[in-house]
Amino acid sequence: MVLLLEELKVYNEQAPNDLANYPKTKIKISSFLKRNDRYYFINRFNNVIIEDYTDSKAGKSITKNILEVIVEFIKDSYSSLVLRNQIPENQLENYEAYLSTNNKSLNQELKDGVYLSFKSFFEQTPSSQHTLEKNKKGEVKKIVNNQDLKISISEVFCYVDNGKAYRITPVGFLEMKKDENGFYILSSRTQLFAQKAGTGAMIGGIAGGMVGVLVGAAIDSESNKGVAKGFGFKTPTITKVYIDPLTGAFIFTE
């Protein structure tokens, strides 16, 4: 397994909607399986962590968070499924652009329907077993299966209606808008993070499979269905939260 530390930056910043000038840590780290000079993407952590402390305690908290992220990321990578697409060694530094060419959700018109996983959204293959039910105003009220039974929204990654995608979050479905950096929703850490920091859980973690044994599906179907957990202070600041084009995880950039 090869780890690629792409960015590690500690700084102070008061984002446009932040309540204070917070210490922050930007971490971007990726993992790959190497076989015969070919690389296969496993997973990545790509987020900004905010510290609640602004005094001498901030340094200790930053160090603790960096350590926890890296340790949990390595552990998570050893139990993750591997992207089947090969990356030549000379393309490793450009792996995101290289792999994103296969992301149909970014490169074609979205197909209407229900997507039970990020993998299905990535490949633009909506479920043939599920449909949207709307009220007289045309608003989506529930999702049903082919037995006309309502399913839990926790079983859904997103749905697309009239060409617009809506991502499941703890506060309901939010529209996924798109800019030059990809899909994003407008939300906050308070809304998206289910538990407090220090739980040892990863953002966008992928479960199942054995590295070196299984080179399997692009994204595990169980990934990202539930509420993401994260590190650091959960601020109510509303920002653009991007959807990782390779994992479906939430990415905070400020």
Results as ranks from 00 to 15, higher is better:
116 L>T: 11
102 N>S: 15
98 Y>E: 04
68 E>Y: 03
66 I>R: 01
87 I>G: 02
100 S>T: 09
86 Q>I: 05
90 N>D: 15
116 L>F: 09
84 R>L: 09
66 I>E: 02
76 D>A: 11
61 S>C: 07
81 L>K: 06
119 K>V: 08
109 E>S: 11
76 D>R: 02
58 A>R: 02
87 I>E: 02
86 Q>G: 06
56 S>D: 15
78 Y>I: 09
63 T>V: 15
63 T>S: 15
55 D>Y: 12
122 F>G: 00
104 K>M: 07
64 K>V: 11
112 D>Q: 10
106 L>Y: 08
110 L>S: 01
61 S>A: 12
113 G>T: 10
120 S>F: 02
68 E>H: 13
110 L>D: 01
65 N>M: 09
64 K>C: 05
68 E>N: 10
73 F>V: 09
86 Q>Y: 05
71 V>L: 15
72 E>Y: 10
122 F>E: 00
126 P>R: 03
59 G>V: 14
65 N>D: 14
102 N>D: 04
114 V>D: 00
120 S>R: 07
120 S>H: 08
128 S>R: 09
109 E>T: 06
52 D>I: 11
94 N>K: 12
102 N>V: 04
63 T>C: 13
53 Y>A: 14
92 L>A: 03
81 L>Q: 08
70 I>P: 02
55 D>R: 08
80 S>L: 04
95 Y>K: 04
100 S>N: 11
119 K>I: 05
53 Y>M: 15
76 D>L: 11
59 G>N: 14
87 I>L: 07
79 S>D: 15
57 K>V: 02
54 T>M: 12
69 V>N: 05
84 R>Y: 11
64 K>N: 10
54 T>L: 05
57 K>Y: 12
119 K>M: 09
79 S>W: 06
73 F>Y: 04
75 K>I: 07
68 E>K: 11
125 T>S: 08
103 N>C: 05
122 F>Y: 09
128 S>Y: 06
55 D>C: 12
56 S>Q: 15
99 L>G: 03
52 D>E: 15
103 N>P: 05
97 A>C: 15
54 T>W: 06
83 L>H: 10
69 V>Q: 01
66 I>H: 00
124 Q>C: 06
79 S>F: 14
94 N>E: 09
67 L>Y: 14
59 G>I: 15
70 I>R: 10
66 I>Q: 03
116 L>G: 01
119 K>E: 13
98 Y>M: 05
61 S>Q: 07
96 E>Y: 00
116 L>H: 01
72 E>R: 14
114 V>M: 00
79 S>Q: 15
116 L>N: 04
80 S>E: 02
64 K>T: 13
125 T>Q: 06
73 F>G: 02
96 E>W: 02
115 Y>L: 04
112 D>E: 13
116 L>C: 03
110 L>H: 00
115 Y>M: 02
85 N>K: 13
52 D>Q: 14
86 Q>S: 06
120 S>P: 04
102 N>Q: 14
63 T>A: 13
68 E>M: 13
90 N>G: 07
80 S>T: 08
126 P>S: 05
85 N>P: 04
104 K>Q: 11
104 K>L: 12
100 S>I: 03
